[in-house]
Design a protein around this nucleic acid. Sequence first.
DNA 1: TTAGTATCGATATAATATTATCGATATAAA
DNA 2: TTTATATCGATAATATTATATCGATACTAA
Lengths: 219, 219
Amino acid sequence: MDTDQKIMQIPLPTLKRLPIYYQYLTKMEREGVRDVSCAKIARDLGLVAVQVRKDLQLTGAVGRPKTGYQVSRLMRALSSTLGYDNKTEMFLVGAGSLGKALMGYKRFQEYNIGIAAAFDASEAAVGLEIGGTPVLPLSKFPSLCHRMHVKFGVICVPAEAAQEVADMMVSSGIEAIWNFAPVTLDVPDTVIVHNENLTASLSILLNKYKTSHPESERD
Amino acid sequence: MDTDQKIMQIPLPTLKRLPIYYQYLTKMEREGVRDVSCAKIARDLGLVAVQVRKDLQLTGAVGRPKTGYQVSRLMRALSSTLGYDNKTEMFLVGAGSLGKALMGYKRFQEYNIGIAAAFDASEAAVGLEIGGTPVLPLSKFPSLCHRMHVKFGVICVPAEAAQEVADMMVSSGIEAIWNFAPVTLDVPDTVIVHNENLTASLSILLNKYKTSHPESERD
DNA sequence: TTAGTATCGATATAATATTATCGATATAAA
DNA sequence: TTTATATCGATAATATTATATCGATACTAA
Ligand SMILES: NC(=O)c1ccc[n+]([C@@H]2O[C@H](COP(=O)([O-])OP(=O)(O)OC[C@H]3O[C@@H](n4cnc5c(N)ncnc54)[C@H](O)[C@@H]3O)[C@@H](O)[C@H]2O)c1
Ligand SMILES: NC(=O)c1ccc[n+]([C@@H]2O[C@H](COP(=O)([O-])OP(=O)(O)OC[C@H]3O[C@@H](n4cnc5c(N)ncnc54)[C@H](O)[C@@H]3O)[C@@H](O)[C@H]2O)c1
């Protein structure tokens, strides 16, 4: 009906799958595939076709009977829904080993995402440049953040320092935080926090393994 | 009734919250807190009390009216459920920037998890030692894996190489894979794969931000 | 042109997860 | 001792998510 991207609330489980579809389609496109059906996507990604179809419907994508979805159009629908259309500039705090890995990760560019600058409290880190991104003194964060209108912050400091960094980010104008520290941050509810808790995530694997291998349960 | 840890299938949403409770309790314990109620846990973690109670019930934890749960006992229930009781040794492949960050991460030890060795195809990486973990030539993986009965593999290689690494892991006896490469791995269904797709995860934040800030939606 | 078929889109059903409610019980205070 | 209350544990109700089904449609090939 209307071709504009409608802003709608997408269920979280679906939202988690959308980027997977996008990454998959990137590969298809590289391989020269023009059209793709829900059945094929589902087969390749270990899902079921109805679910894929229902997910894609939420992005406004429209397919055709018998042929499926046009890859390029489907990718446009997904990238619009996922926010890859607009450039996303992030400020990262904590240029330790994890922070540096993120700073050096080239593929964020494919999604129009960039780490504009990193900040660290340590003398040793300040002055470094990783993947073209400079590490600046923490004290510069508030002014630069306001000046550049940066809205996304990445927290890569030790757990103990995470809350104070979050506070500083919020007071500097940050509105969305990608948090790698294993703590629950307390922020105003106008600020969105997305936790990347790697240890918690690994724990899921441990439990799944344990559940599927009850014999290893000695003691 | 029976104090033994019963092996049961825990719903995935609950399983994702359990490690968060554990990390939270670690903090409480450090602060000298003896008992804690679902209401308090919920308040501090931004959840609702009933959900916390129901989650904890699945670990076999038992509380007392009026006082709540004993922190130490609750942590034991959680660590048993999450598999922290048994030592987990992992082999990591791909000692690049992300792999090195994981190798150097000290806090895995708190969960009885360790990276026993890392492997890399590049001459430059082989021979390094990060956080006490050596980087070995990839060719050593199969024999060492069999010999040491390592069951957990971590994939930190570029996307293009991930499937071949997974194949090698499976044929070497690996039964659970923590995969950081943004691809869907094809493995026998006796092997458990847990994907850590950081870009996909970040995309969720982009969408949430976009949805909550429709005004920034200028074309 | 017609028949056959793969696929979408919509709707209906089933499964799962969250939230509400309430009685039972342990502690603390009157 | 009795009363008040915070909390658990269980059950019930609701909400959300996943899956099944089926008609409509576009392509293919007879
Ligand atoms: N490295 C991993 O593999 C890994 C895994 C899971 C979780 N994490 C979490 O990610 C975060 C970062 O981990 P890491 O391994 O990179 O740690 P790290 O110690 O290597 O780096 C932390 C960096 O933060 C800086 N820093 C400390 N306090 C600061 C402050 N108040 N303001 C600004 N900078 C400050 C330090 O100078 C350092 O450069 C931690 O919260 C950690 O728990 C890391
Ligand atoms: N660095 C990040 O922040 C980040 C973010 C998101 C996803 N990832 C993903 O994590 C993975 C690793 O990323 P990275 O930044 O550490 O990459 P990297 O290039 O720094 O490291 C990759 C390492 O893998 C090794 N390698 C390549 N092919 C191999 C093979 N066949 N066998 C063994 N070793 C091999 C390389 O020698 C290198 O040491 C990639 O799949 C990447 O997409 C990384």
